[in-house]
């Protein structure tokens, strides 16, 4: 088979792209298997060292924070709960609000949709003080509810669901109506199964969004038991004891690698649905 120059160029670009994505992760992983002194003196590593088990064991079990109460494992769980809650509720609420916007013809549907859309211009960071005020007045600081609730509305997801529902032919609704479906059963029996690839995609995006939240949990949580991974990355290994301790670079790399696992798991698990949706055209 003759290889065309264009193919070679395309492959080079692809390989470069892959390297760009993979090399930093590999460096982090390799560096996490040495001890901190080696990395501090010799720089980041490309090969696996002998401290792998020790570093990971230490990261997972060592108690950190100012009052030494929280472990990295606990922070992973916190972030996982937060991301799971945000992603689940975001998808559920967006799907339902898009359903209302598309299928229930009320006069204000269009203005309401644009109002929702405009909230894209007002991300959490912009409205962080009022949001904090509300959550704290409700007594929800230092709780999972407080971490999750202010982030569960999503204009982006609403928009995508709305666009998808609009492509579903009206006859399907009419036919379902004649078959005795009501508003709720049409949503559950038709829209949800038809948009399951969409749901999977949105869930992944929203999970990663929730998992990588930094500012909100930082403001929201004073109790260490609610710290999240991204906060921990900043806080947990920066403190130096009485100014003499060395930065614990190797442990940090181990922490970074560990922190990648939950989102990767979500992607791997949901990818099955993604691919299924791509192969089977159900419309």
């Amino acid at each position: 088979m003759k290889i065309k120059p264009l193919q070679i160029i395309a492959h080079i670009i692809l390989i470069l792209g892959v390297l760009l994505m993979v090399v930093p992760i590999w460096i982090s992983f390799a560096s996490s298997s040495h001890d901190s002194v080696t990395i501090l003196t010799e720089g980041m590593k490309f090969h696996i060292g002998d401290q792998l088990a020790r570093n990971y064991n230490e990261v997972l079990n060592e108690k950190g924070g100012w009052s030494e109460e929280v472990t990295a494992a606990k922070m992973f769980i916190n972030s996982f709960i937060m991301a799971l809650g945000i992603a689940t509720l975001k998808v559920a609420i967006s799907a339902m609000s898009a359903y209302a916007l598309v299928y229930y013809r009320f006069k204000l549907a269009v203005p309401i949709f644009w109002l929702i859309f405009i909230t894209l211009l007002v991300p959490l960071e912009v409205r962080i003080f009022p949001s904090y005020k509300i959550v704290s007045d409700l007594g929800l600081t230092n709780s999972y509810t407080g971490l999750i609730l202010p982030l569960v509305a999503s204009a982006t997801a609403t928009f995508f669901f709305r666009q998808f529902y609009k492509t579903i032919p009206d006859e399907l609704l009419e036919s379902a109506k004649l078959d005795g479906a009501n508003g709720w059963s049409f949503f559950i029996d038709f829209l949800v199964p038809l948009s399951k690839t969409m749901i999977a995609a949105m869930f992944i995006f929203m999970f990663v969004y929730g998992y990588s939240q930094y500012l909100w949990p930082l403001i929201m949580t004073t109790a260490e038991e609610y710290w999240t991974v991204v906060m921990g990355m900043k806080i947990i290994y920066t403190e130096s004891y009485e100014g003499v301790a060395l930065p614990r670079t190797a442990e940090r790399f181990a922490y970074i690698i560990l922190s990648m696992i939950p989102p990767v798991l979500v992607v791997v698990f949901l990818q099955k649905w993604f691919i299924k949706g791509l192969i089977q055209t159900e419309k």
Binding site: P169, E174, S175, A176, L178, D179, E282
Partner: peptide, 20 residues
Amino acid sequence: VDPSERDVAMVFQNYALYPH
């Protein structure tokens, strides 16, 4: 009377089968 209560059945031009 709501369509679901009328006890009528309809065959549509594009069939409107439930794809899933």
